[in-house]
Design a protein around this nucleic acid. Structure first.
Lengths: 162, 162
DNA sequence: GTAATTGCAAATTCTTTGCACATAT
DNA sequence: ATATGTGCAAAGAATTTGCAATTAC
């Protein structure tokens, strides 16, 4: 599991979560902190199950209900955002204070890449207006093959759809 | 339930489905035809449950399993496409031979509007390339308020998220 | 100490599957 | 006739919830 977000940003997020708990009179239990560490400590988009698996790997296993309940607290704190790529389950991603970004999903290996594009932001606002809608937000997912999978002839296997 | 797609197109789709069944040696049961009529006869994006409800309303109720199994046949026929707007369930839409289009989803009343934009098609290809991905397809959903809901001050109620 | 959390298991929601009975061609 | 479909109910997968035991402050 190689993924190394900026360690300073991670530390700041962890501190922000403790602060959020304190400010809301929510006990800082070891489970909550462990779950926050997992989700805030990676740039990957984890499913609830992946979070639970990682907790187990770290010797800090938590019940499924606790994982879901803590993910909800993280969502409320604004430090984490929820994603639904139509896989049949949700994924959770550290927000890192990034305003909004799009996703590229490799249909061969499942890898997720993010990017931001201002033109797209403007375009969606215009498109909404053109159809008598007032835009609130949007979600774009581009499905395709990542560079590695494209170059590796026919790699087969791996996850993609549900 | 007001929704009136071009009746000639609907008739063509119904005929195409019967043909698909015949060509694949699949019995044209009354349930299959009734389910096809419901999905192909509207421009709305129906959930499996809505299909079942509409069948009941038409006095042609079918078992849940049959609804799902027939929706799968319709998907295979290419006459219907599946959508996942992150609501926790899927929706089914008559394809009408349209190549690809985007969706606008009203967060107040749940209304879905479609549109197509060539620039967006090109842009997603370029965006993918810029990140070393080869684009296969994309999905854009713009969430906002439809004209009716925006004009009707604060209408409250209605469905939006799950 | 006491209120809040945890974890287990039961409940939910959407969808799929097994199987005896029914039906299209 | 005979393969295929249908419906019911059970099975599954992801997520939520009730409740006794546990823990943070």
């Amino acid at each position: 599991m190689s993924d190394a977000p900026d360690s300073a940003a991670v530390a700041a997020d962890r501190a922000a979560f403790r602060e959020f708990l304190r400010d809301h009179n929510l006990p800082a239990t070891s489970q909550r902190l462990a779950i926050a560490d997992v989700v805030l400590g990676t740039d990957r988009h984890l499913s609830a199950e992946e979070v639970a698996t990682e907790l187990r790997a770290r010797g800090a296993a938590a019940g499924t209900a606790t994982v879901y309940r803590t993910l909800e607290v993280l969502l409320r704190s604004g430090l984490v955002v929820e994603r639904d790529f139509g896989e049949g389950f949700k994924r959770y991603e550290a927000a890192r204070g990034v305003p909004h970004h799009e996703h590229l999903l490799c249909t061969n290996c499942g890898r997720v890449t993010e990017f931001r594009d201002e033109r797209l932001e403007r375009m969606t606002t215009l498109l909404a207006e053109a159809h008598d809608f007032s835009r609130q937000r949007h979600r774009l997912v581009i499905y395709g093959l990542c560079g590695d999978c494209r170059r590796t002839a026919r790699p087969a296997s791996a996850s993609a759809g549900r």
